[in-house]
Write a protein that binds this DNA or RNA. Structure first.
Lengths: 164, 164
DNA sequence: TATTGTTATACTCTATAACTATA
DNA sequence: TATAGTTATAGAGTATAACAATA
């Protein structure tokens, strides 16, 4: 697999469609001053890195997040998963179908309320989750690779100060 | 307009669908450690803030960016605009149609190459751009409102170090 | 009557393909 | 033959609406 060491010079390939804003002859006006614009560019970059590192068109970052929460919280109902990840109920259904088709999760009928299920990761699902965690950690490290350790930890703190 | 002073406590209304990750009883596992996850949450927050501040469903952040570049670079061709903003040519066409319908830009036939146009902001377009700049600056300030001045400037620097 | 989950449907973005008019 | 721009079309992703089963 040639993606394992593809951290250093791969930024241009990995950024599929994002403006560069260091282009000769184009004046971006206010845009480079806006934090929001930089946030978007970083997000596009991060999403591209992760998508490439995962290397499986079916597994989106969001679907990985779902598997992560299922693995960490065995037996949650679909409504609870939907709320935890800010998904709609139909979206949750479809995403769980995806993981169920891959044998990674199972829906177990609840004895107490036969309308709903408890969602559990299978042992295959737990192995898949472990595999994805390594991949995701690597993509996140690649995202931070232009920062020092101190800068990266500052960056994480500042991000949380904004969204928490 | 009640949105003018809606900076302080409006975060929950402004964040339409983003997980909170400080929920009791749900373990998010690896997710809170990932910078990429925080970047996405901040982006969703920023997009929501800006969309609400603009308060016009037609004017997306991307369309504002286009008007900004047109205003700063009179006479660019559509292919150049497309490249500068990493848009497809069809996407550029449609976005320019939007601003042309609003009387904000005009396509002027080039004498040198009758296939293409020079794109210019009209005087109405320049006024609209000025109006939007104020709105966008305000949304960006709101995005940074939980940070001190120093933190905000650090944050901008770190973002650029990642995406530039 | 309200809730869980599913299916059907629609809407937005964005991407590609096909077309025109020029070069 | 290649390029600028447009129009048509198709694919994700995500939203709502309608439905079936159960409470």
């Amino acid at each position: 697999m040639d993606q394992d060491l593809a951290i250093p010079d791969s930024r241009t390939e990995v950024r599929p469609r994002a403006p560069i804003m260091a282009r000769v002859g184009v004046d971006y006006g206010l845009l480079p001053e806006l934090a929001g614009v930089s946030v978007k560019l970083v997000w596009v970059y991060a999403h591209g890195l992760l998508t490439r590192e995962i290397n499986d068109p079916g597994i989106t970052p969001l679907r990985y997040s779902l598997l992560e929460v299922v693995g960490q919280n065995p037996g949650l109902q679909q409504v609870q998963l939907a709320e935890a990840l800010a998904l709609t109920r139909p979206g949750t259904s479809v995403a769980l179908d995806f993981w169920e088709d891959r044998g990674c999760i199972e829906r177990r009928k609840l004895a107490t309320d036969r309308r709903s299920f408890g969602i559990f990761a299978t042992s295959l699902g737990m192995r898949e989750l472990e595999r994805l965690r390594a991949v995701v950690r690597q993509a996140d490290a690649a995202l931070m690779s232009s920062l020092t350790e101190d800068e990266a930890s500052q960056f994480r703190q500042l991000l949380k100060k904004i969204h928490l």
